[in-house]
Design a binder for these strands. Structure first.
Lengths: 398, 398
DNA sequence: TACTTGGTTGGGAACGTTCCCTATCTGTGG
DNA sequence: CCACAGATAGGGAACGTTCCCAACCAAGTA
């Protein structure tokens, strides 16, 4: 008796063979499967082991209960079992009970892959966000999941880490998982939208929020950035500030442009001249803030107020300014945008624009499901604008 | 000509029928499919519509390219195409190129559901966290995803919202999606672990982190809570504090117990008597903090230091204490645990224990892949303990 | 010539569902 | 008795892969 193992595909399998004479055998004589051994030959390894060390090939296979097992056990057809499990009413009450009971007993779990394969329904939506270090995106996700789970849908979450390539990869994963809808806020470096247009082409609903792609004709959820920015800057003006700087976000994000426009409009309304010198372009990289702030204060005529594109930036600005020994809000008042958790905790607390973050997620999810159910036109390009609120704290008023 | 629509399964389909005479027709005469109409009968609805309003049943079917399409186009078998696409080397170079080119051209996307169905490999791991409002869990997730994507795996993220039922539901989703491994930090109310033991039974690797289940014999990743707590309290003692209170976490979380033990050990080392009165049980619900703090200061002998179970709690405590007009750190010093983002920003900045959060995620993911590849024993109950660091800030030292 | 051998390809079962269509039985009204 | 109906069940194709096994051809090798 000779024992040997060979590598079939990935795993080593063991076999035993009874060889009657001591002689040289041909591969063919040895082989169990005619050609397989040929292929696996290089991996073939003879060795001797005690017989009781052998394990059956099937032994380690953990079998998951299937519809067929239930059918066999109850002597009915798998069609009937399927009918019970999918809630089709055309089943005898007793049969139904028996199936349900046995399913419970055998711990039956529907194989969603088989199901998806035939129905093309995955009951899954996806959401791609640029990060979840700030409290904003997690809150949006909670909103989305609230609505999705009510609709019996799962949510696949992906974060692109503000990296375009990762975003593309995430989109591919979403596609491969056949999400029925996709909610997206793009990275700050995303300028090419092919990976998202692919969804449109396949008629998979997309909804944007926060960082939107204006060129794509799909529904979007935003807050009224223009109005928020306007009121933030108006507040600064009303409290007596004359020279208001702005740390502006990247130009390719419409959100930056809208906030910038709100800023400009407020200045215009109060007849304050616009000075390009104190509108600082900024790429949302938090570690750049220090340099930019120092730059502002090196001007011959430094600003007496700062409107930052978002809260993390404003918070970093506060740190920097405090460390420079400049007084907030007396020497310079600061406003952010978002009302992050931290804003109320720092010293001085940050005046900011709050947005209904969870509501944004819920609204986006609502739209997705309306699209999935064809209640609205996929190309409708609805823009849901949620309102913001000015939260006045100590960074502008003592 | 009569038009009608009937509901087959979920959707209304339209049909047209040429009826030669005006008379009463039997269902059978009308029916297109012998029995189907019988079933759908109750939903049957006759109506007249203009013919050109009709749409073809197949028209809206968007066809996704399959392996078969490629095979047909190139006049080769789907086996060969599959071989190319799975990287099997036994294919002629020209055939390979042709297949790859056509796949590209037709925008072929592998159907992962069909693939999973036959291979039982999903290339997916899951992670369940209690929340992601604090920066802790998001950072862990980033760590996990780093490792997972390197291994070619996708990560399904779920958050239980500190709710036991949601956690169970999440576990079900993970199971249904046939994750190959699961990383978990349980909710504060989880006492029953059946939903996780189910994974063990199916031999799906589990790794715990942070909030672990001590009774389950699986690998775990934790930080040295005992040591961290010890050093935090030691620091308070060394800076001259004599009466150190502790806001202790729920008893069912081992993390709370370990931190409590570290606290007790430090007191013991410095021969400070333990006073049960100032070890306050606390259920991690942030809105309870106010009452508990007030309670502490109503004691005839209030504490001069506070060790809070985690940073959010410590931060809330600082807010409450400040609002009471009590001085930090002179009247009471405060230490947290975690080094959340906010800790360095608030006033006074919080002394705390920092942990290598992203590393925790990476370690957990590493373990999962070692388990998946059977490099370590699934029941080994390895505990990876990562070290912490004391970060001294102004909440303890002016 | 008669084998091996290597390189390449094809046929077809299997994975676990859903669902179309058919079949059978029983009951009912004319 | 017939025609039809309602209730229930079964057979089997289809979904898109993977992969076992067999087959074929050309080139060595004895």
């Amino acid at each position: 008796m000779i024992f040997f193992q060979l590598k079939l595909r990935k795993t080593w399998e063991r076999f035993q063979l009874h060889l009657p004479q001591f002689k040289t055998y041909s591969i063919k004589e040895l082989s169990i499967f005619k050609n397989t051994v040929k292929f696996a030959k290089v991996e073939l390894a003879f060795f001797a082991v005690p017989t009781d060390n052998f394990y059956s090939k099937k032994l380690t296979m953990r079998h998951q209960t299937t519809i067929k097992d239930i059918a066999k056990e109850l002597h009915i057809s798998k069609s009937t079992v399927s009918r019970v499990l999918t809630g089709n009413p055309n089943v005898n009450e007793e049969t139904r009970k028996a199936v349900l009971a046995l399913a419970q007993k055998l711990d039956y779990q529907k194989n969603i892959f088989a199901r998806n394969l035939v129905t093309h329904k995955t009951n899954t939506i996806g959401i791609i966000v640029p990060e979840f270090m700030s409290s904003y995106f997690p809150k949006v996700i909670i909103g989305v999941q609230n609505i999705a789970s009510k609709a019996g849908y799962n949510t696949i979450i992906a974060q692109s880490n503000e990296n375009y390539e990762t975003e593309v990869a995430n989109a591919k994963v979403m596609m491969a998982n056949q999400v029925e809808g996709l909610i997206v806020s793009v990275t700050k470096e995303t300028n090419n939208f092919d990976h998202l247009i692919a969804f449109q082409r396949k008629e998979i609903p997309i909804v944007f929020f926060n960082r939107i792609c204006e060129d794509m004709h799909v529904p979007k959820v935003v807050v009224d950035d223009y109005d928020g920015a306007f009121r933030a800057v108006e507040h600064l003006i009303v409290t007596g500030k004359k020279r208001i700087a702005h740390l502006a976000g990247p130009d390719n994000l419409s959100i930056s442009r809208r906030r910038l426009n709100g800023y400009l409009a407020a200045l215009r309304k109060y007849k304050i001249p616009v000075d390009e010198e104190i509108i600082i372009p900024y790429d949302l990289k938090i570690d750049k803030v220090k340099t930019l702030i120092q730059q502002l204060f090196n001007l011959k005529c430094p600003p007496d107020a700062l409107f930052a594109i978002n809260d993390p930036t404003a918070i970093e600005a506060i740190q920097v300014i405090k460390s420079m020994g400049i007084k907030i809000p007396e020497d310079i008042a600061i406003v952010g945008f978002s009302n992050d958790e931290v804003s109320g905790l720092i010293e001085p607390s940050l005046t900011t624009i709050s947005q209904p973050v969870q509501k944004i997620g819920e609204t986006a999810a609502d739209l997705i499901f309306k699209l999935i159910n064809k209640e609205i036109n996929p190309n409708s390009a609805i823009i849901k604008t949620l309102t913001t609120e000015l939260i006045i704290r100590h960074s502008t008023v003592r």
